[in-house]
């Protein structure tokens, strides 16, 4: 069963189109949701939670129709909003217990779950104190804990590292990764930092201006765009010419060549064949993945590829 399936999802407000014909098919895992501010990320999450109705199109979450079965979706989904949302005059423990009960967990189980998830996010003695005095890092942890309180099958995390210092960021990303990979809870995490997405996510959804720019597994994405870096002692130009004749995409950078399509064996063999034919001394040949950041830089060839494929 796909995690999320949308079909021609469109949301128009009186003056803006927040989502424009979004069709998605997302498999379980940790999924990064990327796009600039105002791209439609929050609107998408709200539609998937059944809180906002789409203008046209359909959305299914865990096989449930988000528009008609919002209650059942929210029973098995957790949500961590981007902004501050914690009452300052309550302790983390009481608050998470209450939120677990709001998700239908009976009282004694709610207490157990609260201490369970607060321990999981790394809040110990502090959890009995009023949250008004918490640091940003502690607040983010409580926000994650309340989203986990009812043991959801899917978590929506809206910018979970927002406002954290580098160390807090690292800890939060570790926590997200552990939650997703060790406990088998699927996660859709929005972020505007590709390096974060690359670090913890298995899959990626890129939207801009309400439109889908790219979706897929991150490994496949970086595979497709991987290059083979070939370094020869001399005559790099002749090698480049020969490879170009054979239909490969080559860039010469001094003594080094970058050959596109580094993921496939054919390219690999073609290069070796050319090196042997020209009898050149091969210094090294290595496969290089591009980072997501390089892929989505404006003007980079990866960005063009991302518009075409998808």
């Amino acid at each position: 069963m796909p995690l999320i399936e949308t079909n021609g999802l469109t949301k128009r407000y009186s003056r803006v189109t927040a989502l424009d014909g979004l069709t998605l098919d997302v498999e379980p895992g940790i999924i990064g949701l990327v796009g600039p501010n105002g791209a439609g990320k929050s609107t998408l999450i709200k539609i998937l939670l059944g809180l906002v109705d789409a203008t046209t199109g359909t959305a299914e979450v865990l096989g449930l129709d988000a528009a008609r079965e919002g209650l059942r979706v929210r029973e098995v989904v957790g949500y961590m909003p981007e902004h501050d949302c914690l009452p300052p005059d309550q302790s983390a423990t009481n608050f998470v217990i209450h939120m677990a009960r709001m998700s239908g967990i009976p009282p004694s189980a709610a207490r157990e779950r609260a201490s369970e998830v607060l321990r999981h996010v790394g809040l110990f003695e502090e959890r009995y104190r009023h949250m008004g005095g918490y640091s940003t890092g502690m607040k983010q942890r409580v926000k994650l804990a309340q989203a986990l309180a009812h043991d959801p099958q899917l978590l929506f995390l809206d910018e979970p590292t927002n406002g954290l210092d580098p160390q807090g960021r690292d800890e939060m990303l570790d926590l997200v990764e552990r939650t997703g990979h060790e406990f088998g809870i699927s996660i859709v995490m929005s972020s505007h930092l590709l390096s974060e997405i690359e670090r913890v996510c298995d899959g990626l959804i890129v939207i801009d201006d309400g439109k889908l720019m790219r979706t897929g597994r991150i490994a496949e994405l970086t595979d497709e765009t991987a290059v083979l870096a070939v370094e020869v002692e001399w005559d790099a130009d002749r090698l480049a010419d020969m490879l170009t004749e054979r239909g490969l995409e080559v860039q010469v950078l001094g003594r080094e060549l970058e050959v596109a399509g580094g993921g496939s064996d054919g390219v690999h063999d073609a290069i070796l064949d050319a090196v042997v034919t020209l009898n050149l001394p091969l210094v090294r040949m290595e496969r290089r993945r591009r980072t997501l950041e390089e892929l989505f830089q404006p003007g980079a060839d990866g960005a063009e590829a991302s518009n075409g494929a998808g």
Binding site: E75, M102, S103, G104, E116, G122, F124, D151
Partner: peptide
């Protein structure tokens, strides 16, 4: 911290009482 985190996360298998109970809470 790593060690303490590793005390683990338990899945919840018990009942989910739904809307009426949530409202009562």
């Amino acid at each position: 911290t790593g060690t303490i985190y590793d005390l683990g996360y338990q899945a919840y298998e018990g009942p989910r009482r739904g809307r009426g109970y949530a409202l009562w809470s």
